[in-house]
Design a protein around this nucleic acid. Structure first.
Length: 504
DNA sequence: GCGATCAGAT
DNA sequence: CACATCTGATCGC
């Protein structure tokens, strides 16, 4: 029963509202069967489950100074940056329940307090991003109507693929995650952005006016730089720092996905704890995080991009070693080789950074990517970037242009400075089962002077990594956020979750 | 002509 | 199959 009751009040129990597939139990909602299932039904369900949002959209935030955002040192407002558990190992997390107090405001790094190194920001880090549920197909977008719960319009909204799906809403809070393409989401007064990939920030543009956008500081810079969103809406949060936002304690954790990507940890005033992974690559070191070591997770919103045992790939370090040694070998044989690494907007930086470090060459890429890379503020990366394509044998190009036809052409534009091209396409899905284990088995595709390697460099968790992570976290419930488009896929994933969590 | 949206390609 | 766009067509203003 997706009760309507919780409006405005204490967060209601949530898991009870989910079926075995992590989907909201259908209330006796009428018309639910209008369509033949699949997308339409999913979106119908999504569209009709408002139980996960708390009542009245606290009127649109005044675009003056981050809506309720009080940064370090200031007080008041609905966001309070609070002291992270003093001396972690020894003391307890701030008392649950009493936690939401809005007073203290000491910013403290979790890792500092905990006595270990913060998340690595260099060396090897990024992985392969994942998409979020894709849009559904075939309705022409009709205008959203707000207001009246009249059934006709409710049904219309329900059928509208632009209705925010339930798995982007955080129950008992007025929050959504990566839900910008639906216009104003009813009941949502704070919009979280997990990372800066198009399928997650889609819908953000200069006309955005539906509420504050909370994200990591790095993601915030990218939003500001690339999307011309009114910066009054952008609310940067530091990693590993507790903030109280609308009465909920929120902490961002390194997601090991692309630069700026974060897991989002919510602790409600009633003690319930939810973790949204955004897109992430799970790892052992992630399990060391204090927030995952202690305390129970009630609900896990999981990046299930590769939630199938056929997805196996090596640790990113192994792939990087392979790429580096391959590059060395080709350069030795032909010193006038151009090394190319393909990449989307952000992500895969560690592949070319590692080559740059190992071969002691700068990184060339075009002006728009340079601007983005510099915005990370990673000196180890920035100091290696150059703007002259003749000055470096290491170029970063858009992934789409890393094919034989383009590379041959590209080589031709470089004035004989190079005689051959060795290119890498780091993607999470171009690999055979075999090469997932044995990198040496990867066979390049060669044509004339151009050689292209597809390498299994993933910025999403492999099946095994997902399993380890879920078994470690032992959430009471898992809500997949990817591959939820059809029921068969959902059932399969849920069967894995059950298996992993049985007896837990 | 522009931006937003969508089908299809890569 | 998938990734995360990218391109090109269509629609609305």
């Amino acid at each position: 029963m997706a009760t309507a009751g919780g409006d405005a009040d204490p967060p209601q129990p949530f898991p009870a509202d989910l079926d075995d597939n992590g989907f909201p139990s259908l209330p006796s909602s009428p018309a639910a069967t209008t369509s033949s299932g699949g997308f339409a039904e999913d979106f119908y369900r999504s569209g009709t489950d408002w139980s996960s949002l708390r009542a009245p959209p606290p009127r649109r935030p005044p675009p003056e100074g981050a809506p309720g955002l009080k940064t370090k040192g200031k007080e008041g407002g609905s966001l309070v940056q609070s002291s992270l558990f003093q001396a972690w190992g020894a003391e307890r997390l701030r008392r649950e329940g009493a936690g939401a107090g809005e007073s203290s405001l000491v910013q403290r790094s979790l890792f500092q307090a905990w006595g270990i190194e913060g998340p690595k920001r260099e060396g090897v880090g990024a992985e392969d991003p994942s998409p979020s549920p894709s849009r559904s197909g075939s309705w022409s977008g009709r205008k959203r109507r707000r207001g009246g719960p009249d059934e006709a319009s409710a049904a219309a909204a329900a059928m509208n693929p632009r209705t925010c799906p339930f798995y982007k809403k955080i129950p008992g809070t007025p929050f959504t995650v990566d839900a910008f393409r639906y216009g104003e989401v009813e009941g949502c007064s704070a919009y979280f952005l997990s990372h800066f990939h198009h399928d997650h920030y889609g819908g953000l543009n200069k006309k955005w006016c539906h509420g504050p956008i909370y994200c990591s500081a790095l993601t915030a810079r990218l939003v500001k730089m690339c999307l011309s969103v009114n910066s009054d809406y952008i609310c940067p949060l530091e990693l590993d720092t507790e903030y109280v936002i609308e009465g909920v304690t929120v902490t961002l954790l390194e997601a090991n996905h692309c630069p700026g990507a974060a897991l989002i940890h919510f602790r409600l005033s009633d003690g319930k704890t939810y973790l949204h992974t955004g897109d992430f690559r799970a790892s052992r070191s992630m399990q060391l995080h204090p927030l995952l070591q202690r305390g129970r997770i009630n609900l896990l919103y999981l990046d299930t991009t590769y939630c199938n045992p056929k997805y196996k790939f090596p640790p990113q370090e192994d792939v990087i070693d392979f790429v580096v040694s391959t590059a060395r070998r080709y350069l030795k044989k032909q010193p006038k080789t151009l090394i190319v690494v393909g990449a989307y907007s952000i992500g895969k930086e560690n592949v070319y950074l590692a080559i740059s470090q190992a071969l002691e060459v700068p990184i060339y890429t075009d002006a728009s990517r340079r601007r983005i890379l510099h915005s990370f503020g990673w000196m180890d990366l920035s100091k290696r970037i150059c703007s002259c394509n003749q000055s470096s044998p290491l170029h970063v190009l858009p992934l789409g242009s890393v094919n034989h036809e383009n590379l041959k052409k590209y080589l031709g534009t470089l004035n004989q400075r190079f005689l051959a091209v060795l290119a890498f396409r780091p993607t999470g899905w171009t690999f055979s089962e075999a090469t997932g284990k044995q990198l040496d088995l990867i066979k390049p595709s060669s044509k004339g002077s151009v050689t292209i390697y597809g390498v299994p460099y993933s910025e999403h968790s492999s099946f095994t990594e997902l399993k380890d992570f879920v078994m470690f976290v032992r959430p009471l419930k898992v809500i997949p956020t990817v591959n939820v488009g059809n029921a068969a896929s959902r059932d399969k994933m849920q069967a894995y979750f059950r298996e992993w969590l049985k007896g837990s």
